[in-house]
Amino acid sequence: MPSKLNAVLMFTVAALIGSAAAKPIVVGGKLDPEAQILGQMIYLTLKDAGLEVTDKTSLGDTGVNRKAILAGEIDVYPEYTGNAVYLFPNAKIGAKQAGNSGTIYGLARQLDTKNGITWLRPAAVNNTWVISVPQALATANKLSSVADLAKYINGGGTFKIAGSPEYFNRPDTMPAFESAYGFKLKPAQELILAGATPPQAQQAAANGTNGVNAAMAYGTDGTLDALKLVALKDPKGAQAVYQPAPIIRTDTLKANPQIAEMLNKVFASIDQPTLQKLNGQVALEGRSAQDVASAYLKSKGLLK
């Protein structure tokens, strides 16, 4: 009799495990072009592997996706390592930690373990605040980093940058650059555009509007290459590093351990110029994020 009972229990447990494994994997995502592309890469990769997948890559902003994954409403979505600064406020992550790619990734991964979330491999890109300048200015004055720019400005070089009020007023944006690299902009060197987006500021720099020859930007903006602008490097880590990585519910990963290798390969293939180009195909050419993601994955042999 005990043996029959054990057999029934084992069958029930096996059935439950099989049912959990067969549950569709829900892929979430944010709304901007880059997040849409990365979300589609995750979705298409899992679908191509024969897994049952539900596409919710247009779910909402960071807060919406965060609540959804904690509640088990979605299983995986692309998140940025730098967001650990406010996802885990009690950790009190400092600027030095946030500016180091390995450190901020390690902290994000460690701090989310207790939440049942696993951070997979991040892409070798940094979607963070940067200073962009026209290629001609960079070439003529040998500007490749903010350190080079500081020497140029302190040496009397002509400089005027366009940006939003947030870009100039938040302590972790332009003031952080000034503090880390030892320069201070005068009011006349700032063109503050209320409500401006990075592409609008970059357009001003590309066209020399009102004497502007620099603009706020994100490191992976697709408009930079199209407008012949250069994103200056931040060797001192004045800004937090925002590397995109798939984050997945640990229970989902345990049920489908092959996902880690698949998504790690995808994100390992992405570098800064590549992501800028892909972003531009959506933002400037009007292509769908799914088409762009599919074409890229196929070009890398990552889709059948």
Rank of each mutant, 00 (worst) to 15 (best):
residue 2 P to C: 01
residue 7 A to H: 06
residue 9 L to F: 12
residue 11 F to W: 11
residue 11 F to A: 15
residue 13 V to R: 14
residue 19 S to I: 13
residue 19 S to H: 14
residue 19 S to F: 13
residue 21 A to V: 08
residue 28 G to F: 09
residue 31 L to Y: 06
residue 31 L to F: 04
residue 34 E to W: 03
residue 38 L to F: 08
residue 43 Y to F: 13
residue 44 L to R: 11
residue 45 T to F: 07
residue 48 D to F: 06
residue 51 L to F: 11
residue 51 L to P: 04
residue 60 G to C: 08
residue 62 T to S: 07
residue 62 T to G: 01
residue 65 N to F: 07
residue 69 I to E: 01
residue 73 E to D: 15
residue 74 I to L: 10
residue 74 I to F: 11
residue 84 A to Q: 00
residue 87 L to Y: 05
residue 87 L to N: 13
residue 88 F to N: 07
residue 90 N to D: 09
residue 93 I to H: 03
residue 101 S to L: 01
residue 102 G to M: 03
residue 105 Y to L: 15
residue 106 G to D: 03
residue 107 L to C: 03
residue 110 Q to A: 11
residue 113 T to V: 00
residue 118 T to F: 05
residue 127 N to K: 11
residue 130 V to Q: 12
residue 133 V to W: 02
residue 135 Q to N: 10
residue 136 A to D: 14
residue 136 A to T: 14
residue 144 S to T: 14
residue 145 S to L: 07
residue 155 G to D: 08
residue 159 F to I: 11
residue 164 S to Y: 11
residue 169 N to H: 10
residue 171 P to L: 06
residue 172 D to T: 05
residue 175 P to M: 03
residue 177 F to A: 13
residue 178 E to C: 12
residue 179 S to I: 04
residue 183 F to R: 13
residue 187 P to M: 12
residue 189 Q to N: 13
residue 191 L to I: 05
residue 191 L to C: 02
residue 196 A to R: 00
residue 201 A to V: 03
residue 204 A to R: 00
residue 205 A to K: 00
residue 205 A to N: 03
residue 205 A to G: 02
residue 207 N to M: 02
residue 214 A to C: 07
residue 215 A to K: 00
residue 216 M to I: 02
residue 216 M to V: 02
residue 219 G to Y: 04
residue 219 G to H: 04
residue 222 G to T: 05
residue 224 L to F: 05
residue 228 K to H: 14
residue 230 V to Y: 01
residue 232 L to I: 02
residue 232 L to K: 00
residue 235 P to R: 00
residue 236 K to M: 05
residue 236 K to Q: 12
residue 238 A to N: 04
residue 238 A to K: 03
residue 243 Q to F: 00
residue 244 P to L: 10
residue 247 I to Y: 08
residue 253 L to N: 00
residue 263 L to P: 11
residue 263 L to Y: 12
residue 269 S to V: 09
residue 276 Q to E: 15
residue 276 Q to K: 15
residue 277 K to T: 11
residue 280 G to F: 03
residue 287 R to C: 07
residue 292 V to D: 09
residue 295 A to R: 07
residue 296 Y to D: 09
residue 299 S to Q: 06
residue 300 K to F: 03
residue 303 L to K: 09
